[in-house]
Structures are given as C-alpha cells and as structure tokens.
Design a protein around this nucleic acid. Structure first.
Length: 869
RNA sequence: GGGAGCUUAGCUCAGUUGGUUUAGAGCAUCUGCCUUACAAGCAGAGGGUCACAGGUUCGACUCCUGUAGCUCCCA
C-alpha cells in the first residue's frame, strides 16, 4: 500500500480509538496485578473542553498509559460533577430565554427542566475527551447525582450531624445577589477594584460640630448602628459617649471607642454597619449594637433602609452621593483602590450578610489531613504547595455547606410548623426520629428547601466512584482505593484536594491518593489567563481537527514544566505536527527497504546498531527517572530528540543503503525493532501516530497500546563515547565543507592524524559516507595543500579539488587558539592557587590537571597547523 | 498587611549535595542546500558579564543577606 505524503491524523485517530474501545483495553477489573488508579477531577456536567481540561487530562492519560504499558492494572475513572451553582445558573438563563422565571416554577418543575438540560448537554465534555485520546474506563463513568452517589452524600450528612460536626447557625456569610445563595469563603474571588472613598459629615447631638467618617459604601449608611473611634485618638476624645445622626434619615447612633479602629486610615472615625460587613459585625457583637439589614436578597434596598427602597445597591450609591453632596453632608471624595469580593460563578460583588445556614466544623477533621501531607504520606508535586496547604489548614474556618439552590443534594433536615427539626436520610426516618425526640408524632414535616455545596459531594469522589460508601468494602474499593495519583490545578487545592483528604480520613480512615500533581494554569502566549472576555481561549476541538490529537497533546505538553504556568502557543502544535511527519517519513524510508532485503554480507553497520541500542537503553532509563519525578515535558523533549536526532538524523543515515541498493536483513530487522521500541516510549504522549506506525512497520496480532515495555539496562559506555566522537567529527568536518563551500556532491580526501587509529577504523565506513570522502588515510605528519581542523585531540586534513582559502582557515584556527589560551589561563590560575590545591577534592584536582594537559596538547596541535599554513 | 515562588540566549525552559573544558536544549533568527524518507525538510552558524548589590568560599548560575521587578496564595 502506498503511504501518504504526510501523516493524516483525521482518519487514523478515530480508527484506533474505536479499535481500543472494541478490544476493551481501557476496561479494568480487579485481578492479581498491582493496581494503578487515577480518578479524573470531574468537570462540570454541562461544561465544554477547554485548555485546562486538555492539559489536565493529557497528563493523566500519559500516566495511565505508561502504567498500563508497564503491566500494571491501570484504571482511570471518568465522571462529571453536577456543579450545583454553575448548572443552576445556566438553567435559569435558559429558562429566561424561553420567558420563564424560576420563581414561577415549583421545585419539581424546575428540577425536571434541569434534568432535561443535563440529559441534553451533560457529558459532551466526556465525548470530547475521547477525541483527545483519553484512555478512560468508560463503564465506570460516575455522576455526583447518580442515585447511589446521592444517597451516600445524604448518609454522610446525617452521620456528621449526629456526630455534632454539622450544625445550623446564624452567622455572617457571603451572599451572591444574583444566584441568590450563600457562598463559601473559597467561592469568593478578591479583586483589586477602583473605588471612591466618600468623606461624610455626621452631626453631633447637642454640639455645633460634626464628625467625618470615610466610607466606600455610602449606600449602607442607613444600616449604621454606631460610629467608632480609637480610644486614644485625641481628635475625638470629647465625642466618646455622645450621639451622632445618620445623614438623610436622622437616626440617632452612639459614638463608641474601640482599638480596632486604625487612627491613620481615612479620618480615624469608622461607621459601623453590623449587618453588612464582617468586621463591623464582630464590633457590633462586642458592643451590642443593633443589626439593621437594609438589603433584600437581590441586592436592592429593603424597607429597613427607609429611603431608596427597591433600588439596586450600586444605583443607590450613585444617587445617594449626589443627594449627600446637595445637602452638604459630603465633604469630599477621593480615589481609592481596595480588594472587593466577587462571586466565583456570577462575578457579582458579594454582599456580606447575616444568615441562618448549615455549617461543618472543620478543626478536628482537618488535623489528620494536615499531618498526612506534612509527613509526606501524601506527596505534593511541586512541593511548594505543602506550604499553601498548611497555611490554610492551620487557619481553617467552618465550612458553610448550604446553598439556596434547587439543583443539588437536598439537605435532609425536616421541620415542623414551629421550626423544630430533625436530620434523617428520608421522611420516614425523620418521622421516627421526630417522635422519639419530641415525644409526639409530627403533624406535618417539610424538608429543608436548600441543597448542599457541590464540594460536599465531590469530596467523596475518590472512594464513592468505587461505591465505597454505598456498598462498603466491596471488591472494587478494596482493590483500587487508595488511588495513586491525583492530577489537578492548584486553584482547587482548598475546594477539593484538602477536603478529599479530610473525607478520606473521616470515612475510610485512609488517604485518598498517594501523590498529587498540581498542573500550572494555561495562559496565552502573552501570559494572560484564558478568558471568555479576552477571547483568547483557543477552540480546542478546532485545533484537534487541524493538527490532530497527537500534535495537540505534544503542543500542550512540550512547554509544561511541573507546576509552572503554561504559555500556550499554537507554534508548539505545529512542532507537534511536524514531529508526526518526521516519524511518518522515517516509516516511509524503512518501508522502501522492505523489498530489498539481502543476506548478511558485511559488518559495516555493526557499530551503528550497537550504538543505537545502547543509546536507546540510556535514554529509556533517563525517561523513567524523569517520569518518576513528574518531569513530563522534559521526558517528552528527551524522546523527541532521541527520535529526531539520534534515530533519524544519525542512525538511519548511518545504515541507509545507497540509492536503490539492498539492505542487510539483520540490519533491517534490528531497525524495525528499534522503531517499535521508540514508538512504545512515545506512545503515552502521542498514542495515535505511534499505534499506526506500530501496525505499519509489520503485520501484528497485538496492539502497542497494551504492549509491555521493558527497557534494557545494560550500557556500554565505550560505545556511547565512540558515538559522540563520531558525531563530533562528522559535524566538524561538515562545518569545514560548509565554510569552504565544498559542494555536497564533491568528494574529499581525508587524512587523520590520531593516536587512536583503531577507534577510527571501526567507524570509518560511516564517517566516509557522512562526509562524502573518496578516501580516508592515516598520517603522522601534516599534509600539504589541505584544510586543517582539530577535533578533540585529533587533527584532520582535507584535500579537495578547490583552491584553499588560507585566510579564513587561519582566522578560524586563531579564534580557537585564543579561546583555548583563555581557558588555559583560568585553569592555571586555579592550579596555581595553593589553597585550591590544598582544599579541593582529589578528583576535582585531577580533573583540573587533565583539563590543563588537554588544553596544552590542543594548543600545540593548532600552533603546528598554523605554522605550516 | 502576611506568606510562598520566580528573574539564565529574542521567546519558553534545563542546569540534581558549590568545581565536568570560561553556561545547555527547543523554538525563532542567519548562511548554504529543491542531496530519491521528510522544504512541515537537510547541513551548519551566531546569540547569554546567569535581575542588581554585597557576603561566605581556594572556587558561586548554584549557599547567605539586602534591593528591584513579576506571579500566586491568604487576610
């Protein structure tokens, strides 16, 4: 069959993915082998594949494919997250487009729309991962709202409530005025925001003066309960204990003193609004101030505000500033930059608010989870994240787990008409509990309307995907858990990683995974985060169509050092595509020889084969080391160079027969073997092209995907050194040819002056072919009428038909001489230093002496050559 | 405000306990080649006082201190 000019991923990718699925290579069941398990961080069920997923899942696929090819029982579990707030927001938006408001629907009606949406768009992302080549065990696909999973989440809630770890309480929370729900601290993103600092005058009761406060939130003055100054602040000492009036509404509030106030910020006087600021709340508690909540759920002002009722908080800010100015309360405004909290999901400014919510007490749960990471029972790569983790864990706060949403796991608390409640897995149990607890059967119970934070289900992921909670101690969970490697972004270290570790100890008394690999953030090539508003997120599926999955994987992996950010550049995908073609062309070359095999006639290629087999072993070992340290991009670079440089540029050229000449059978077979092993090494990174080549190389009954790879370990250093020498000499001589403008087709006569004649004799055939000589001879003295060059410790004389350009040659030699002399000076300086000779380790000293001797010898050779020019 | 990390060639990065030929790759650049596998290619070349300033040491890209810039996390 005629091979195409270039590698064509479009047909190949799909063919092999279907084949692998048919053969069930990705399917894993417990057996006698050692398990290697990865659970995929579940993407949002309605999400689409973006660069972050691409990086993340490519890394996981590389690890899992490598494990599979090592003979481990590799299991990679896919799934999706119901993503409570994100999905609900999407459904609400969809309904709005259809002219339906959420408030007009019952809970059941809304949920049926949501499920419809989930069925329609859910799991698109999983289909997209197939295009990337991800070798997931699809039969194990999980969803965090699957019936079993749902039940386990509820079970965990009830258990923790009964242990007293979960409680209900009214505290300050972050309120999302768009999604109309509470948020955890982790869901609030702080951003530097330009604001205005308004200086407002509050009149003092009984005195003809006023006090000036500075605030960025003039719209909250109607919620003020006090003005606070520092007790030692001389400016305000006479006002302590007096009263002031809130502008516009004239409410009377006390002036109190507390050393919480920073005297040097603003005017040193602080308005206290306990309902709408976390710090003001604590201050309010301490001084028993009134709490006046002036906002509605949606961020508009409530009746309690008295004025501007029903208007949005930011609109009020503008209007009230104008009114305050008109009425003489606004002294001045200044520009001010500070951090403001925004909702991670809806990007609206979060409103601190006092609210009755469900909480999970974290202190006790966190203790073992902190220790296990500090002791490196769970290893973090890169290790710097240990610090981040420790800092958060040591300062951990209780987790607000309730959300005012419908899409999610409904909180299993049941209330009577008086608001008394019980927590139980279902209504029947709730009734029993109620009867027991309150000594009478309930008239009617209704379930809490709220649902749980998404992460309250995802923290169970590593063992509930194996039904570790719904079916405790089943064969799967016993075999696969703890899992091996978690690959995820550092942005969810608190949301997810930390909480999974806590859940692991709490419910299984075991770590959930042995190592965590934190990927970097994918940015554009200018270093900016990928974002919709910048429009700098590439269309991933378009890229896969254009370059192929292998090139895309290559492109994203080649520049992804562990833990560093990835600057995504399409040029890297081109490099990947070119690499595909390079491999493809090597295949074409070898296939040309297939019909020209002959019996073995010479030993000419013996060196090439021996060298490459050693080189292959050497690099395989290097790659193994790098993989163990998660230096994936380095490993890929190393394989890339092994294939492109060592195999294609050197080895294949060395064994390549002349035009339409035959090739020895044994050389051919060896070459097929090398190529196969190279494909094995590369397969985890670029699965499609390697599988295709594997089958093109010769008829196969098996597949590369599951072929076990065992790199040779025995190395012959001498051969490897000879190889480098040969490469150096070839490059050096080609350089001379280039500089002297000797045409490629023109042959040269080569004379070698060396003390290592035998070494050159063993590589003579290759050398001759690579630098196009008509003859190679050995000499003990300088050859007249030649170009001279010194490579390592040997001198080479080149005789051509062309006239010699002595000036350029002389200049080159002089330049080299200059460099060597400089080098020699630095070495001699070291050796002339008595303290160095006394203190340096013997091997270092010996090395310096060798450097000196070598440099001197080479200087002599060059001087001789120059003299004869 | 507190903490962590980074700064090496035009770009992206290696450089493993301080000494390995006065710093290595890849990409980009330049020169010469349409050489029957590959111009998405081949053969070469140029390019860096290792952010800055001190210190420790016989010796510092490597260790310490400070400064500047950038990034991230937390409050």
């Amino acid at each position: 069959m005629e091979l195409s000019k270039n590698f064509e991923p479009q047909s190949v990718d799909h063919k092999w993915y279907s084949h692998w699925l048919d053969k069930q290579y990705f399917k894993s069941t417990p057996d006698h082998r050692e398990a290697y398990t990865i659970v995929m961080p579940p993407p949002n069920v309605t999400g689409v594949l973006h660069m972050g997923h691409c990086l993340n899942n490519t890394i996981q696929d590389i690890l899992i494919r490598r494990a599979r090819m090592k003979g481990l029982n590799a299991c990679w579990v896919p799934g999706t997250d119901h993503a409570s707030i994100a999905t609900e927001a999407k459904v609400v938006a969809m309904l709005r487009e259809r002219g339906i408001t959420k408030s007009s629907l019952s809970r059941e009606e809304f949920l049926s729309y949501a499920w419809e949406w989930k069925e329609k768009y859910g799991g698109i992302i999983l289909q997209q991962l197939k295009k990337l080549g991800c070798s997931l065990d699809w039969d194990r696909t999980n969803f965090t709202m699957d019936p079993d999973y749902y039940e386990s989440v509820i079970k965990v809630f009830v258990e923790l409530y009964e242990k007293g770890v979960i409680y209900r309480g009214k505290r300050m929370i972050n309120w999302d005025v768009k999604a109309l729900t509470a948020l955890s601290d982790e869901e609030v993103i702080r951003k530097e925001t330009n604001q205005k600092l308004y200086h407002l005058k509050y009149a003092i009761e009984g005195l003809d003066e006023h006090i000036v406060i500075a605030t960025v939130r003039p719209e909250t003055i109607m919620g003020d309960s006090a003005i606070c100054v520092h007790p030692n602040d001389d400016r305000y000492k006479h006002l302590q204990g007096k009263f002031a009036f809130v502008p516009l509404i004239n409410r009377r509030i006390p002036i109190i003193a507390d050393d919480y106030v920073a005297m040097d910020f603003g005017t040193g006087a602080l308005k206290v609004t306990p309902a709408h600021d976390v710090n003001d709340y604590s201050l309010g508690q301490k001084h028993q101030l009134e709490i006046i909540d002036i906002f509605n759920d949606n961020g508009t002002l409530s009746e309690a505000a008295q004025i501007y009722v029903g208007l949005d908080r930011f609109e009020v800010r503008k209007k009230i500033a104008v009114e305050l100015e008109e009425k003489g309360f606004l002294l001045k405004t200044e520009e001010y930059t500070s951090e403001v909290g925004y909702s991670e999901r809806t990007d609206v400014v979060v409103e601190p608010r006092l609210s009755l919510q469900w909480w999970l007490s974290m202190k006790d749960i966190a203790t073992p989870a902190l220790k296990t990471v500090m002791d490196e029972e769970i290893k973090f790569y890169p290790t710097k994240f240990k610090n981040v983790y420790r800092h958060w864990m040591e300062n951990i706060k209780d987790w607000c787990i309730s959300r005012q949403l419908w899409w999610g796991h409904r909180i299993p608390a049941w209330y009577d008409e008086k608001g008394q409640f019980v927590v139980a897995a279902n209504e029947t149990e709730a009734k029993e509990k109620y009867t027991k607890q309150f000594g009478m059967a309930p008239l009617q119970l209704h379930q809490d309307e709220d649902c749980l934070d998404t992460w309250f289900s995802s923290w169970l992921w590593p063992f509930e995907v194996f039904k570790g909670l719904s079916n405790p101690n089943n064969a799967d969970v016993n075999y696969y858990y703890p899992t091996n490697t978690l690959v995820t972004g550092p942005d969810i270290i608190f949301f997810w990683v930390a909480r999974m570790i806590m859940a692991g100890f709490e419910f299984k008394n075991e770590i959930p995974f042995k190592e965590v690999y934190f990927t970097g953030t994918v940015r554009d090539k200018l270093g900016r985060k990928m974002s919709k508003s910048l429009g700098n997120s590439p269309d991933l599926l378009g890229l896969i169509d254009q370059y192929g999955a292998d090139a895309t994987r290559f492109g994203i992996m080649i520049a992804s050092p562990a833990g560093n950010d990835i600057l995504f550049d399409e040029a890297a995908l081109e490099q990947g595509r070119n690499f595909n073609n390079k491999i493809w062309n090597a295949l074409k070359l070898i296939k040309m020889w297939e019909g020209r095999k002959l019996g073995n006639t010479s030993n000419d290629n013996h060196f090439a084969i021996e060298w490459f087999s050693n080189r292959l072993a050497e690099v395989s070992n290097d790659v193994e080391t790098m993989m163990q340290q998660f230096r994936l991009s380095e490993a890929l670079k190393t394989i890339y160079s092994l294939i492109w440089d060592d195999f294609c540029s050197w080895y294949l050229e060395w064994i390549k027969p002349g035009f339409e000449q035959p090739i020895e059978s044994s050389v051919y077979d060896k070459t097929i073997g090398f190529f196969t092993e190279l494909m094995q090494l590369l397969h985890p990174f670029m699965p499609f092209v390697t599988e295709e080549i594997y089958h093109q190389l010769q008829e196969r009954t098996d597949d590369l995907c599951i072929k076990i790879h065992q790199p040779a370990t025995v190395l012959n250093e001498i051969i490897l050194q000879k190889g480098s020498l040969l490469k150096n000499v070839i490059s050096g001589l080609r350089d001379i040819r280039n500089k002297q403008q000797v045409k490629p087709k023109e042959t040269i006569k080569l004379y070698i002056q060396t003390s290592n004649k035998e070494v050159f004799e063993s590589i003579e055939t290759i050398l001759s072919k690579q630098v196009n000589t008509s003859s190679i001879e050995y000499t003990n003295s300088n050859v007249g009428g030649s170009f001279t060059t010194v490579i390592d410790k040997d001198t080479f004389y080149i005789v051509t038909e062309q006239p010699i350009d002595i000036t350029s040659q002389k200049a080159d030699l002089e330049k080299e001489l200059e460099h060597l002399k400089g080098f020699l000076v630095s070495v001699e300086k070291k050796l002339g230093n008595e303290k160095f000779v006394q203190n340096a380790k013997p091997e270092v000293l010996a090395l310096e002496q060798k450097k000196k001797a070598d440099a001197e010898a080479k200087i002599n050779i060059i001087k001789e050559s120059l003299a004869t020019l």
